[in-house]
């Protein structure tokens, strides 16, 4: 059983500057920030190392941090440019009973994160969901399609903070 700090030190030793920081504040569970283009390798290490054995991915969530420049539009909505999107990984070892949280930050304009769906198959659908609703592009994902929205939804990704409902979908009025 290891604490987040011990895991952070282990990762730092192995991947040095690709592991960015360990954040812990009073009201936040501590999390480790990782480079989005090395997350696949980090996750393999976390799963297969004998002292870590993170065999289970509890949850994977995409988040729109909405920390870019906000520009109000005429119709009352906002457009956000710049800033970041992030993906949060909640890992757990059912053998060693410890948990850790990883986070990656990726630019909003070109959000690219390595897929971990071959590390935990569980990530497959979660990543499709994050792609569908937030618009994060998972590199090397075997089947990156929309999952909850219609396959031919053209109005973007609904969980982005500056998402606007389209007026029509295939000629049907959307806010009916």
């Amino acid at each position: 059983m290891k604490t987040s700090e011990e895991i952070y030190n282990l990762l730092k030793e192995k991947f040095n500057n690709k592991i960015i920081e360990l954040t812990s504040a009073a009201s936040v569970e501590p999390f480790i920030v990782v480079d989005p283009l090395i997350i696949h390798e980090v996750c393999f290490y976390l799963r297969d190392d004998n002292d870590l054995q993170f065999n289970s991915l509890m949850n994977l969530s995409g988040v729109d941090n909405a920390n870019g420049e906000k520009k109000p539009e005429v119709d009352g909505s906002i457009t956000i440019s710049g800033g970041t999107l992030s993906v949060v990984y909640h890992l757990e070892s059912t053998e060693l009973k410890h948990k850790v949280i990883l986070k990656v930050f990726t630019p909003r304009e070109n959000p690219e994160v390595q897929s971990v769906s071959d590390v935990w198959r569980c990530a497959d659908w979660h990543e499709r969901e994050a792609y569908d609703l937030i618009g994060i592009n998972f590199l090397n994902h075997p089947d990156l399609r929309r999952i909850l929205m219609p396959y031919d939804w053209e109005a973007g990704h609904p969980l982005r903070k500056d998402y606007k409902n389209p007026e029509f979908y295939h000629g049907m009025k959307v806010p009916y």
Binding site: S27, V28, E29, V63
Partner: peptide, 23 residues
Amino acid sequence: KPPVGEVYGRVENPRGELGYYII
């Protein structure tokens, strides 16, 4: 009105692990 922070809570729902990740 919670303070700034994030939390992952989970329970054993009849179907399995029901988790909420709230920021």
